[in-house]
Design a protein around this nucleic acid. Structure first.
Length: 288
DNA sequence: TGCCCCCTGCAG
DNA sequence: CTGCAGGGGGCA
């Protein structure tokens, strides 16, 4: 599910809700989803995104590393504010977008629950590909996931991307953009969108990519990812912000999931094919 | 460097 | 029923 704009949205949302709190309790509903020792009693110091990963720094030199993979969600349910009066306790957050989730959490897909003083954080993951792990902060840089990451998509240089294309002359540009060691943060949706924006066919080989192409790509990457962040990400099936709302970027996609539909630019039917093991969408006229 | 696989669920 | 789904690790 989540690519850079979705993970960035989740991180920004979590920052608003959980920073500074000490974890009261951790409940693991599925062993596969959680690795390490439960960080009970530790305080949440900072939250950052690294590629599609979420890095939460805790007290006692521990770090919580989370990957949502395809279907992961982090949903924050604030503890209902209560006050005395009218003979009982009363919820004050009526109308909050998480109200639906108040009824649904934990869901059948909830795998880990973090209980905090001000609310509860649910890690949900339908397909069980995602994970939460606790490790000593000094070992973060040696974590196999972190170790493989290349430069951030929003901060990559022309020289780096060009040299990686030249070093993999036979790879398709799409496979290169999906490879997190080449560039970190793009996934299947945004790769297709970026290539459309840059006017480059996903099937083009690395060796055919010129410096001019790279410049177009980098501009397209910034434009598309920033738009994705602006609209709080793309919700196709599972993705939700921590507040439980869907993103809105799905309304602005130009090619992804639009196979057979008219190109928004030239009206030609969008081609859907399979490339680098993933569904791939492009316009045969606008992209060369 | 491309495939299969980890899983669950949904559309066709 | 088969095929496919936003990711990425491990294997030729």
């Amino acid at each position: 599910m989540p690519e850079l704009p979705e993970v960035e949205t989740v991180v920004r949302g979590l920052k608003k809700h959980i920073i500074g709190q000490a974890i009261k309790d951790v409940e693991v509903l599925n062993k596969k989803s959680f690795k390490g020792t439960k960080p009970k009693g530790l305080k949440i110091k900072s939250i950052i995104r690294r590629g599609k990963g979420i890095v939460i720094e805790l007290s006692k030199d521990k770090t919580l590393l989370i990957h949502l993979k395809m279907t992961g969600q982090l949903i924050w349910i604030p503890t209902p504010l209560r006050r005395k009066g009218y003979g009982g306790l009363r919820r004050l957050n009526l109308g909050h977008p998480t109200d639906d989730f108040n009824r649904e959490m934990p869901s059948s897909h909830t795998r880990v629950i973090f209980k905090l003083p001000k609310g509860t954080l649910y890690f949900n993951d339908q397909r069980l590909f995602g994970w939460v792990k606790v490790l000593p902060t000094k070992e973060l840089k040696n974590d196999p996931f972190i170790k493989k990451l290349g430069p951030e998509a929003l901060n990559i240089s022309t020289a780096h991307l060009l040299s990686r294309c030249q070093k993999r002359p036979q790879s398709s540009i799409k496979a290169l953009l999906l490879d997190q060691s080449v560039i970190t943060g793009l996934g299947n949706i945004y790769s297709d969108e970026v290539l459309f924006e840059a006017g480059i066919r996903p099937t083009r080989k690395g060796k055919t990519i010129t410096k001019h192409d790279i410049e177009k790509l980098i501009k397209a990457i910034k434009k598309v990812l920033e738009k994705g962040i602006k609209y709080s990400g793309t919700s196709i099936v599972n993705y939700k912000t921590p507040e439980g709302s869907p993103g809105r970027m799905q309304n602005y996609l130009k090619v992804y999931s639009r196979g057979g539909l008219p190109c928004r630019r030239c009206k030609t039917s969008i081609t859907k094919t399979r490339l680098a093991g993933r569904g791939t969408h492009y316009c045969r006229i606008c992209q060369t």
